[in-house]
Amino acid sequence: MQERAVGFVFQHYALFKHLTVADNIAYGLNARKRSDRPAKAEIKKRVGDLLDLIKLSTFGDRYPSQLSGGQRQRIALARALAVEPRVLLLDEPFGALDAQVRKDLRRWLREIHDRTGQTTIFVTHDQDEALELSDRVAVLGNGRLEQVGTPDEVQEHPASPTVLKFLGDTIEVEAIAQGGHVLVNGRETPVSAPDGLVGPVKLYVRPWQLQFADAHEAHLEGFVRSSYRAQGRQRIEIDRPNGKLLVVEASDNARLAAGRPVGLKINNGYVFSN
């Protein structure tokens, strides 16, 4: 591991609790063989520079137990950077932090990365994070590499249902490909079937690709289970006849009573063979 020069940042920081922040950051450098070790003054300078980089310049003498989760993770990053690894590997580094801190750190990490140009591999199961942070995204499912591409690519042209499902909420619909179109419950949808695909297929629809509609236009039907507000939008949970739950977002003033029957029409979607 030493030779491969991979810098690790762990989900639970793994800072050395008995060392000061400065000693933590300097650990990798101090651990080197005497012949490879830089001078004390040099190490001190490196640590100082990194503390400036992560905007914790005055924290050098503190102990990890005195810091917040977000601060600890920044120190962990500085510690990993101190040994100038060829690749930086972050293993769900923000998993232990609350939502707001996570957002802030995401932004901050992006800045650091742009500043240092450090090759970084970021592991996460949070798709927002993946899409926001990365230059390239690799999606893994069941231990297999499903797709590698830019965030736009994987969202617009997902290579498999796994990728699709990872990158956002999906509603799975049984459909039939016929004559170049995809039909749901007998009704045609605007989604075109890829060449040659005939017969039963799986249609995956994003919530925003659905629209409330009357019975004569609707592809899907159900009953409202509940409706609640989240981040300025109205989330509506709908029970479908096949037992599955469907969640759509609507504008804030769309309020639907529980038990009310609704119809939804499909405006777009992704087709995959069964």
Binding site: Q2, V6, F16, K17, G28, R79, A80
Partner: peptide, 11 residues
């Protein structure tokens, strides 16, 4: 965990 971290740092 801490020992693993130390190893990744080259100790």
């Amino acid at each position: 965990v801490e020992e693993e971290a130390a190893l990744t740092l080259g100790a």
